[in-house]
């Protein structure tokens, strides 16, 4: 059976990424399990949770990109979310106090970058406002976090948190209509009323 070839011959695709992804998946799983087992055996602080979360974060950010709606905004939001949770875990499980200063700085830095991008990339901003809004809301946790043990407040953290709030409020005011629209459509259930 001889075929007349009518389709272009594709360039040979490198299988490197696919194979690398498979190897990394099993490496991560084995590493996570090994850490959990060793941690249980040697007891002490629950450092394995920090390691496992770090592995999950790396996997999600490098090897499991969003299938839908991948954008610079959504990816930055995801990075900040995983990093923030990691900092909170470190604070509670390993080194209390240290992350209390770093977390508000990270969240402020994120909001500042988003703020700049928002004005720089005019064409895309309206469509990605919800991811900024959600992480903006999340960043509000930095406030109670930074004023923990009041009145011995971490003033650096508190200042950054306050700056985040201001940035967030400005973004919400400018985008109030868009945010309402986004919330409406994102939470539609498509339910048929009987």
């Amino acid at each position: 059976m001889n075929l007349k070839i009518i389709y272009p011959i594709p360039k040979s695709q490198s299988q490197f990424y696919r194979i690398f992804r498979i190897i990394m998946r099993y490496t991560f799983i084995i590493a996570a399990l090994a850490c959990a087992i060793v941690n249980i055996c040697v007891k002490g602080k629950a450092w394995s949770i920090v390691v496992i979360w770090s592995l999950i974060s790396l996997w999600q950010l490098l090897f499991s990109l969003k299938i839908m709606e991948f954008s610079i905004y959504s990816h930055a939001t995801r990075i900040t979310f995983y990093l923030s949770v990691l900092l909170i875990l470190i604070d509670y499980l390993l080194a209390p106090g240290w992350a209390r200063t770093v977390l508000p700085i990270v969240l402020f830095a994120y909001l500042l970058v988003m703020f700049i991008l928002y004005f720089a990339l005019r064409d895309k901003r309206d469509r990605h406002i919800l991811s900024i809004f959600i992480l903006g809301l999340f960043s509000m946790i930095a406030i109670p976090y930074s004023i923990d043990h009041f009145p011995i407040t971490n003033w650096i953290a508190f200042s950054f948190s306050l700056a985040s709030v201001v940035l967030f409020i400005i973004l919400v005011i400018i985008n109030f209509k868009n945010i309402i629209y986004e919330i409406k459509v994102r939470f539609k259930t498509n339910r048929i009323k009987k």
């Binding site: 389709y7 594709p10 360039k11 064409d123």
Partner: peptide
């Protein structure tokens, strides 16, 4: 474009022009 809602995916219109491509791949 297909977008992600909290309960379902949905479609949102977008008027950016689409470029035709020369067929090269599978």
């Amino acid at each position: 474009t297909v977008k992600s809602g909290f309960f379902w995916h949905y479609l949102e219109t977008n008027n950016n022009p689409i470029q035709i491509e020369e067929e090269k791949d599978i």
